[in-house]
């Protein structure tokens, strides 16, 4: 009986739960970055736990490069988020709107920040991958 009422409550509440974090298909690129930021953040916490257990431990060649992708993405997107969330790149409220006004906070200066964050991510990730895959094996 209790299971039944819980089952009914689940549908009556209609909450998406954690799947709502990753429902990005219908929305703009910021929502994809949000989802990726969540995943990379959780993975970094998991890595840090292992890292605390043994600071000398590293996952290994290719996994090191993957770790680089995770960390550099979180860093680059984090810089964008700090700027946007402190209200520096979201523009000003409008006094006059077009009939189909697109939001300034998304399609204004903030879009350049997105491009900047992605470029920064690729550059940092490439440097990290080069170090992890080429330089470190050479050094032994």
């Amino acid at each position: 009986m209790e299971a039944e009422s819980e089952f009914k409550e689940y549908y009556a509440k209609n909450m998406r739960g954690i799947s709502g974090w990753f429902k990005a298909r219908a929305y703009t690129i910021e929502r994809w970055l949000y989802a990726a930021h969540r995943i990379t953040g959780i993975l970094i916490v998991l890595f840090v736990l292992a890292h605390f257990y043994s600071t000398g431990w590293h996952p290994g060649l290719w996994w090191d490069a993957l770790l680089g992708i995770i960390v550099t993405f979180h860093t680059a997107n984090g810089i964008r988020l700090i700027l946007a969330e402190l209200g520096f790149a979201v523009g000003k409220p409008l006094l006059v709107k077009k009939p189909s006004q697109r939001p300034v906070s998304i399609e204004g200066v903030q879009r350049y920040l997105v491009v900047f964050a992605l470029v920064l991510f690729f550059v940092l990730a490439a440097i990290w991958a080069y170090y992890a895959l080429v330089v470190q094996p050479m050094m032994g």
């Binding site: 409008l94 939001p103 998304i106």
Partner: peptide
């Protein structure tokens, strides 16, 4: 955390995401 979907779906161009960042 600025996923900005609220502004994306707003049918009136209110841009709530901008409001929240300015509020912060």
């Amino acid at each position: 955390h600025f996923a900005a979907s609220c502004s994306d779906v707003c049918p009136r161009g209110v841009d709530p995401a901008q409001g929240i960042q300015l509020l912060k």
